[in-house]
Every structure is written in structure tokens, then in C-alpha cells.
């Protein structure tokens, strides 16, 4: 962390937390992610009004209203597009997309890929619980192929979506995985993700206690990466494709070119443009 340590941070948890109480089930991993987000923002001393949290649909996407930042709770899967519009229009804001595995990888899969590819400076935080919670336990793109559910008895038979590898191949500039049971570890990943230019993708394994109670044991399964992050996509790609999906840490820190824009609304002089049309 290249930040001079303050005596006392100007901001704390309370500065980011709104009075709206989450509707998540007690025990949900998302509470840990929320904590991580607030700790990261406080560490970075980002004024809440300079932060915009953009989301789509699903349990994870309820986060914006639980914060004291500017929030946008939009339609299913499209948050990366909303965030792109906002960041291009208002580059000085810190833009964070909060999403889930269904929102980001299924209905929003195309936007996920293209947000990675555009590499606009923002952070995508996906709370991955391998299930649809808001609609009562359907398989998500990251559910194991044999996970039994009402809608897909015996399992879907589909291979899970390798989100980090897809992000790498698509052009994301920072790729990491965390676990909600380690809020400080996730806070650290978020700080790095927010600070790193371009599109940062942080997957946080976040157990669903209602539809996937067995995920409580993820705390025994996750293990920190034993190697340093790399800026070599080939190395990162090999690691990600041979990983068991439970390694936490930073996999890729790239220096791919970012897409940015500025929008100035002050010029109302259309004369030159109109003269071009004159006969």
C-alpha cells in the first residue's frame, strides 16, 4: 500500500453505512463483503459523495441503498454499462459495480466481457455464491454441473463459468479473488483494485446460507495464493486455468491501455457545426 498512514482516518465505517438495513439472511457472506467495502473506502479516505456504487439485480445488487454513497440500482445484468456511462461522463468519481454471479456472468455476461475489454477505470465486485438467491435457489453460471435444484433436477450438466479466466482473456487490468469470511483480506483486494487504473475485477466467494448451506465450509476450503501476482497474462492465464477456484489473492495486475473520456458541457457554440450545413 503506497499510502502515508494517517494518525486517524478521516472516514470510518459509519460514514459509508446508510440507515437502510439489509434484507440479506443472517449469516449471509454479503455482510462481510459490505464490511470490506466500507473498510476499503475508509482506508482510501474517499468522500462518500465522490463514490458511486452501481448495481443490477440480485441479493448482491442491494448494496447501493445500504451505503451513504451515490447509488444506482438498475436492471438485471447491465450495471457495468451504467457504470461505463457514468465514469465516461464523470471521470473524477470513483465508480464501483457490485454484482453477483447470475447478474454479472449470466444475464450480464456480454457486458462483463465488454467492460473488461474497454478497460474503463472502475471496479467490478462480484459476490459469487454460485446460486440465484432472490428467485429461490436456481443454478447460476458458477454452480457446479451436478448441483441439484428444482429447476435442474440432478444438475444442469453445464460447466461452471471461469470468470477470472474470462476476465483475463477479455482485457481486464486487475484480477483477484477473495473470501467474504476474510473481510480485511477482501478490503485489501478492493483497495488495490480501486487504486489500479482500468477495469478491476474482484470475485468474492460469499456463501449463501439459505440455498447453499454447504458453502459455510468454504472457510475451510479457501487458501491464499502462494505466489505473487503477475503482469504477464500468459502466466496469470495458466494459473487461473489450473486453479481449484478457491485460491484467494491477486492473480493479474496489468498495464493494458485504459479507455477514458471527458465530457464538457460548457460549450454551447454550435456556429461552426451549423455553418457546415449551409449551402
Amino acid at each position: 500500500m503506497n499510502k502515508a498512514e494517517p494518525l486517524v482516518s478521516r472516514y470510518s465505517h459509519e460514514d459509508y453505512k446508510s440507515t437502510v438495513k439489509p434484507i440479506w439472511c443472517p449469516g449471509c457472506g454479503h455482510f462481510g463483503v459490505e464490511t470490506s467495502l466500507f473498510r476499503a473506502l475508509a482506508y482510501l479516505e474517499l468522500p462518500p459523495e465522490q463514490v458511486a456504487i452501481i448495481s443490477g439485480i440480485g441479493c448482491s445488487s442491494r448494496i447501493p441503498a445500504y451505503t451513504q454513497c451515490y447509488g444506482f440500482h438498475g436492471v438485471h445484468g447491465r450495471a457495468p454499462a451504467v457504470a461505463t456511462g457514468l465514469k465516461l461522463a464523470r471521470p473524477e468519481l470513483t465508480v464501483i459495480v457490485t454484482s453477483g454471479d447470475g447478474d454479472a456472468f449470466s444475464i450480464g455476461g456480454n457486458h462483463f466481457i465488454h467492460a473488461c475489454r474497454r478497460n474503463v477505470d472502475m471496479t467490478l465486485l462480484v459476490m459469487d455464491n454460485e446460486v440465484y438467491g432472490m428467485t429461490k435457489g436456481q443454478p447460476s453460471p458458477t454452480s457446479p454441473a451436478d448441483w441439484d435444484s428444482k429447476i435442474a433436477p440432478g444438475g444442469t450438466g453445464f460447466s461452471p463459468f471461469a470468470s477470472l479466466a474470462v476476465a483475463l482473456a477479455s482485457g481486464a487490468n486487475f484480477i483477484a479473488r477473495g473470501f467474504s469470511g476474510d473481510p480485511n483480506g477482501v478490503a485489501r483486494l478492493l483497495v488495490e483494485a480501486i487504486q489500479h487504473p482500468g477495469f478491476s475485477f474482484v470475485q468474492v466467494l460469499s456463501p449463501c446460507v439459505t440455498y447453499r448451506p454447504e458453502e459455510r465450509f468454504w472457510k475451510k476450503t479457501v487458501h491464499p495464493s502462494s505466489v505473487e501476482s503477475t503482469n504477464d497474462p500468459a502466466v496469470a492465464g495458466h494459473r487461473l486455468l489450473s486453479d481449484d477456484g478457491f485460491t484467494t489473492g491477486v492473480f493479474y495486475v496489468g498495464n493494458r491501455p485504459c479507455y477514458s473520456a471527458t465530457v464538457d458541457t460548457s460549450n454551447h457554440d454550435l456556429r461552426a457545426i451549423e455553418e457546415d450545413l449551409a449551402l
Binding site: A79, A81, V82, G85, L88, H114, D264, N267
Partner: peptide
């Protein structure tokens, strides 16, 4: 020329959502 910006999105859904993002801003 006016200091604005046009972006070609990945589809019409993204276009409309980008518009809302920018306008929200």
C-alpha cells in the same frame, strides 16, 4: 468538437444503460 463524447456500446441494452449512467452523472 463540442467537448462531448459518443461511444459505440456492445448492444442496444448497454447503450441505453450507459445513457442512464451518464445522465445520472
Amino acid at each position: 468538437k463540442l467537448g462531448g463524447h459518443l461511444i459505440q456500446a456492445e448492444d442496444e441494452i448497454a447503450s441505453m444503460n450507459m445513457v442512464l449512467g451518464a445522465s445520472f452523472g
